Amino acid sequence: MQPPPGWQAPPGMAAKGHAPAYPYPYPFPMPEVRPHGMALAGLGKRLTARLVDIVAVLLLNAVVNGYFVYLYLQDFIPIFRNIMEQAANGTTVPVARQGTPRMQMLSIAIMIIATLLWLAYEAPAIGNSGQTLGKRLMGIKVVPVEKTGQLGFGRAFTRWAWLGMWTLFWSCGVGLIVQLLYALSPVFDPRLRQAWYDKSAATVVVDVPAGGVPPTIEPGGSR
């Protein structure tokens, strides 16, 4: 088998009698990975689908969490005005020292409800069909690595938890940073484009074939 066109052996290798070495383990580039015969979803599609899902979850929060946010703002706005007046006079007091006990309870409740809404929106949909609203609109879906059937709620919950549970830590600033890293993690896996939460649940995100019916390819190549 001949080396790829234009490839040259490192200087001195031929003189030393070494067999030609290739810049990768095989004489030609590795073929594209196609889990169960389906193409991997592009990173642009995955990002767009995630943004659609974020908007959907925000709308759910506006309905369910809206009243609690309203109560929180009732306490927060007078405090904020007081801070602005103090700043104009050259003296300020941190918001944390002026916050009411109700604000602290409401902030915890809002975060817990927001997390549960995200869980209820994503995990059952991924476990059943592999698609949330965003993924359905973008024509992509989550599938298990080893089969083409349903993922199931347990693995869908595991996949969601590695990303969604960090919402509970938004108040300390850590949660949002970790979620951003998780969202960018498919970039670090050019082979399967698995996010870290995909690796935790052994899933991949693929393009849905035309007609929405995936090919029937069982493990081991049997049909």
Rank of each mutant, 00 (worst) to 15 (best):
Q2G: 13
P3L: 08
M13R: 13
A14I: 04
K16W: 12
G17D: 05
A19S: 05
P20I: 04
P20H: 10
Y22H: 14
Y22A: 09
P31V: 00
P31T: 00
E32R: 03
V33P: 04
V33T: 11
M38E: 12
G44P: 01
T48R: 12
R50G: 09
V57H: 01
L58Y: 02
L58S: 06
V63N: 03
G66M: 08
Y67A: 15
V69P: 03
L73Y: 05
L73H: 05
Q74V: 14
D75F: 04
M84A: 10
Q86G: 14
A87R: 09
A88K: 11
N89R: 15
N89L: 11
G90D: 03
T91M: 10
T92M: 09
T92F: 09
T92C: 00
V95L: 10
V95T: 05
V95M: 07
A96E: 09
R97K: 15
T100C: 04
P101K: 08
R102H: 13
Q104C: 07
L106V: 14
L117R: 01
L117K: 01
L119R: 05
L119S: 03
A120W: 00
E122G: 00
E122I: 04
A123W: 00
P124E: 00
I126Q: 04
T132Q: 01
L137T: 00
V143W: 03
E146R: 13
T148V: 15
F153S: 06
T158A: 12
R159K: 11
L163H: 13
G164P: 03
M165K: 05
W166Q: 09
S171T: 14
I177R: 02
I177M: 13
P186L: 06
A195L: 08
A202Q: 11
T203G: 08
V206D: 07
V206L: 04
A210D: 12
G212L: 11
P215F: 02
T216D: 12
I217T: 01
I217Q: 10
E218T: 01
